[in-house]
Design a protein around this nucleic acid. Sequence first.
RNA 1: AGGCGGGUAGCUCAGUGGGAGAGCAUCGGCCUUACAAGCCGGGGGUCACGGGUUCAAAUCCCGUUCCGCCUACCA
Length: 883
Amino acid sequence: MNTELIAKSYEPQQVEKKWYDYWEKNALFRAESTSTKPPYCIVIPPPNVTGTLHMGHALNNTLQDILCRFKRMQGFNVLWQPGTDHAGIATQNVVEKDLAARGTDRHAVGREKFIDLVWEWRRKYGGLILNQLKRLGCSCDWSRERFTMDEGLSRAVKEVFVRLYEEGLIYRGDYIINWCPRCHTALADLEVEHQEKESQLYHIRYPFETGTGQLIVATTRPETLLGDTAVAVNPEDKRYKGLKGVRVLLPVLNKPIPIIFDPYVDTQFGTGALKITPAHDPNDFEIGNVHHLERVKVIDEQGLMNELAGPYQGMDRFECRERIVQDLEKLGLLEKIEPYQNAIGHCYRCKTMIEPLLSKQWFVKTAPLAKAAADAVRSGRTRIYPGNWEGVYFEWMDNIRDWCVSRQIWWGHRIPAWYCTACGEVHVAKAAPERCARCSSQELVQETDVLDTWFSSALWPFSTLGWPDTSAELSTFYPTSALVTGFDILFFWVARMMMMGLHFMGDVPFQDVYIHALVRDAEGKKMSKSKGNVIDPLEVMDQYGTDAFRFTLAALAAQGRDIKLSEERILGYRHFVNKLWNAARFVLMNIEPVKTPDTPKAPATLADRWIFTRLAQISDQVSQAIADYQFNEAADLCYQFVWHEVCDWYLEMAKYHLYGEAPELKQATADSAQEILRASLKLLHPFMPFVTEEIWQKMPGTKGSIMSAAFPLATDFPRDDTALKEMDILTGVISGIRNIRGEMNIPPSKTVTVVVDAAQAGHREILDRNLDHLKALAKVDGASVGKDLPKPEASATAVFEEISVHVLLKGLIDFEEEKRRITKGIQKLEKEWEVADRKLSNQGFLDKAPADIVSEVREKAETLSVKLSKLKENLSFLEGIGD
RNA sequence: AGGCGGGUAGCUCAGUGGGAGAGCAUCGGCCUUACAAGCCGGGGGUCACGGGUUCAAAUCCCGUUCCGCCUACCA
């Protein structure tokens, strides 16, 4: 017995840091720029520099790490490209909050100084989330870490912007955009969250200019009437025929505005009359364009009513609403107020209600880019898993709208455009022009807006690899192999990378996109700080260990369904980690010193023949499952194999030889057990990197890190399919005896004697050969195996296939209990038999079902009927005694 | 409004044309020299409901219903 004792239970805290440092120090995460090995590359979805690790990150990065470690073990040149995102609005908010705490603000500090402060903040705290990824075990190539604001990526952004502008795919203009009055910037449509809210529908009278009659208009936003420039009705609407040329008076302001006719208006909604506010509503803006209406902006960038709002000037938009409703009431112009439910846009960052505002912004013309991006998926050049997301992707791409990319904040990539103060000419260039190309003035000022953060993220798969320069990395790793992400950024990020990748690299950015689930709480609710239902991954790792946590995430990551995470689940997998640990402890304790033969002999025992065969099968299945992104399947295969095959059966059978006297078998078994353990560790390594490394390093016969070991292949192990059948017989008989023992409440300390009646010589041979195992595993002291052996009187019987196992229970047997047990078995089998029999007596089945199915069912029916008749024999035997 | 996903054991969920599964929980027996974070055994299901296709449906099709999510400019 090995004298080096290892701890009785696995203590992750001490182990994890040790091995992460070891991997880093030995450069095991390092990718080769060029290599003879096949390339495999994943770019990380860059977390916000301001972020801290949450469950979404944990799942996302665990899955990527599984893929990378797996591929590395398969001999690929793996690059997992890490980095962070400058997260314009979020980061700016954080630093502004800092300033506010010190009683100042960014305007007092000034733009340049403010940006310095953000960089300083980033130097101090920006590495936090990356360190948390290290805790999670992520095998990123940290030597290649990038940041969307670093020099190279900034160059890429400028290059892309200028080229798109020159190609006419970027333009600037006055459009209605989503404005966040709190963040003080424009937002893209995608950045607006719609929330269903109880609100009110106000019916307001707009009197005819003539003084008699009126038009009643329904609106949810009465305060915008100050900016109305028309009222629209449907040309088909009979109620409003004959109003051509008529004007109505805008309430309060008494300003005459025209009635226009537009088919957009729904005659069924409200009164069929729609007030038109082109400067504050996207639809009205469109209609206004068609009818050449004036655009009157009455709400400013702070969300306050401006000078065009007359008596309401200076009021907040919500206050104005209340006041205007009061005034309408006084004027007798309020017809009624109805309760109403509608979806109102809110800022995704700060949840402030969005104000649609007329504003001058920069846009990307997306339609041409989107077409290529959709086609690439249609043709299968990029595949999205699970496939149903492709439909969602097409839906978006086919109906895409132009992308507002300018943001009125300071932290980000400043738009490379310069305006001539003399003549107004716009220059877009990578560097500031010396003089105006039109009037030669040297008075040029740069655009103050910065770009949407997602603009730089869209370039991530090639900008991180060195673009716009040419690089070995680009030619080796682009297109990247897989992208792993959540569906919440399918449009924000994946779609835009597809567009940019195809446009600038001429090829898709990735071959596969794997869309994983959202992590929710145990009740299925989205985790959020305000709900207080967040589970902090770092606390989980502290409490249960990283390996247990990662394994849980993988095991729950079934495609197409969200993950409901509960601590109970993690605890269960922590037990699994400990199980593995103890299996290793057992093997290590029983290693014969000195000898570790390099030439494995053909397995001699049934246990060895069987487990190697199973290992071959499992290795195949696990590889296939990971390759198909069936992480839960892969995890489950490993779990079942290690716990219920290796531990429950193999190691238990190995004990017989390890504790036995035959030195050759002892050595052979010790060798096999080690081999099985090493292979199991390798299978599990992608999921549980730390504990597997810890054990690996303790084992003889291992060199270097388990990270560099080859992932098990089916062909690595001797395969012997007859061993499967033999094992099936042996375990079937053992389980039969155990079942009787359990049902009869016979304690393990009490051994029993059995009589095994097996008709087939082959079965008898197998059982004879493994009698010692049978005795040990079923706590049997004596067993006779033979043909047509009579059933001893005081015995309980189990039937496995055609084998009857009689357990002698002199003085222990309760005949009534035994009858009940047998009857139960008969009933169960009869049901099964009837199903099979029904099929066999169905001519349609015999004619049309495939031959192998038919013979399978026939065989089953036969086995069942043999088993049934044996059980019935037993029952009548018992009844004979009972009388 | 449209689209997507889901409804399977007490709970959380796999399984997607040919014998209803896992983990946890539960019940019974065990401190058997790797592991009580363990071992052995048991119980537990009209696979939401209704129809159809098929020799055969939890699985495919249609409908109903409930839940969740996403997209959307009906004021």
